[in-house]
Write a protein that binds this DNA or RNA. Structure first.
Lengths: 251, 251
DNA sequence: GATACCATAACTTTCGAAACATCATGGATA
DNA sequence: TATCCATGATGTTTCGAAAGTTATGGTATC
């Protein structure tokens, strides 16, 4: 049945190159460059998204019987998906006791934030230096897609939160994608995905947060397009640090 | 808790704490703190080891039928193991075409080396600052186990190469295990394991390499036990960089 | 009353067959 | 000759039943 017909509607506007055929946490949800066998990979994304958005609470036990019904997939497929999420740090696997959602903590947030700032700064600097016209176009497009949602009212944003998460991820990815160091991109993606779990906690914060982040994204984009490495790096560091600090104060 | 009775012979001399119940590439082969369901995890380790030691060549296709016979496990179990190795970067998974061993390249070696140096230095510095008596004892023991093999003749070392890899990994891990940042340890382990693939290439290098490395390990251990952060960090940076440069020259 | 023991239930882990996709071959057609 | 489609072969992906393990609860024993 030809893949599964996941997203034929979207002309998939970025190619950048052949790019990584990696498999890690690089390529994600709906749109699906070099996608997997699709059934299995789609499950990984749904599970990760559900963990990120606290559908399953930290430390909650993930039972195969339940999940199998919920996602309508076989046990083997589930196990494969959970194994990958374990490698990414979203769940833990113990002895013969199955999978649990990884815990969250203030300390972990602080550590992940520090690593992400470090990696993102380096990746962004290299990306700006190596980015070509294609990279610029893709960046502009990704930012535009993000603003379309960020412009909405708070209530509307809440409804389409998973879409925002997705576009926010794509925007940040678009910033660093021209970085030649594949592992640098990979490691920073790992940390970015972990931060998603904590970002969700700031979902409740009414306004106040969204507005300033909206501006920051635009300024970072502009600095990147100007190939102003220092400015872009400084802005993104502030962007990340500020966001995390707001989240810390909510814990 | 009986686990599965993997290694009763070894009194398992390090506890450090409750430690990470993580699942990533943290805990490895034979000895096995917090081990997995054992059948599946053992397979992951054998596969990783076989990829590392070029039993399977880079870019080689990994067929389920072959592997199933070779390791005497079911297809589902294999798939789960390969999924994990894909997350760690040892294999790649494409569309409906199965798994392939990841390629190696000079550029990747250089990048991995740079990341590993950076991460290992930071982890070591923090580990030294936080290490207690238990950490020191474990470090001394790990170093001793390593020297037992390094003291052997070149021919003997060759025969017990996989054991050396294991003990070398444990020694380096013992150095940084007191680092409080779990993700820092995790990321540096990821890079360490990747470097193992390249270290194997230097296996052929007759003598010359082994001797100097032998001394370096000892000096790093001593500096760590002296809690001399600057010295230990400088030594380990040289240790890693020098090793990698020798390997680069063999490519 | 507390503890050890054993049966039962709940769940995890493993396996391989069936469904599905891709690739290679060869013959028909323009 | 080159292109295209059928066809078979090889290999991957998915699933759920069977085997194995851990937790649960109840009974006998001290």
């Amino acid at each position: 049945m030809t893949g599964t017909g996941y997203c034929r509607a979207d002309p998939n506007p970025h190619d950048q190159k052949a790019e990584h055929t990696l498999s890690m946490s690089s390529e994600h949800p709906t749109r699906s460059t070099t996608d997997d066998a699709s059934a299995g990979r789609a499950l990984v994304d749904r599970l990760r998204s559900d963990i990120t958005s606290s559908v399953f609470a930290p430390m909650e036990k993930l039972k195969f019987a339940d999940l199998s019904k919920r996602y309508d997939v076989g046990i083997g497929t589930l196990r494969e998906a959970l194994t990958q999420l374990a490698s990414e740090g979203f769940v833990t696997l113990e002895a013969g006791k199955g999978f649990k959602v990884s815990p969250v903590s203030r300390e972990e947030l602080l550590e992940i934030t520090a690593h992400f700032i470090d990696l993102e700064k380096r990746a962004l600097a290299e990306s700006i230096q190596h980015g070509d016209e294609n990279w610029e176009s893709n960046l502009v497009a990704a930012h535009h897609r993000l603003t379309l949602i960020e412009r909405l009212s708070w209530a509307e944003r809440m409804e389409r939160h998973s879409e925002w998460v997705q576009r926010h991820r794509e925007f940040h990815k678009a910033l660093v994608i021209a970085c030649p160091g594949k592992w640098l991109v990979r490691l920073r993606s790992l940390m970015f995905d972990q931060l998603d779990r904590y970002r969700f906690l700031s979902k409740r914060a009414p306004e106040g947060l969204g507005a300033s982040k909206f501006d920051e994204h635009g300024r970072i984009k502009d600095a990147a397009l100007d190939h102003d490495v220092d400015k872009a790096v400084a802005l993104i560091e502030h962007h990340i640090r500020d966001t995390s600090e707001r989240i810390v104060s909510l814990l």
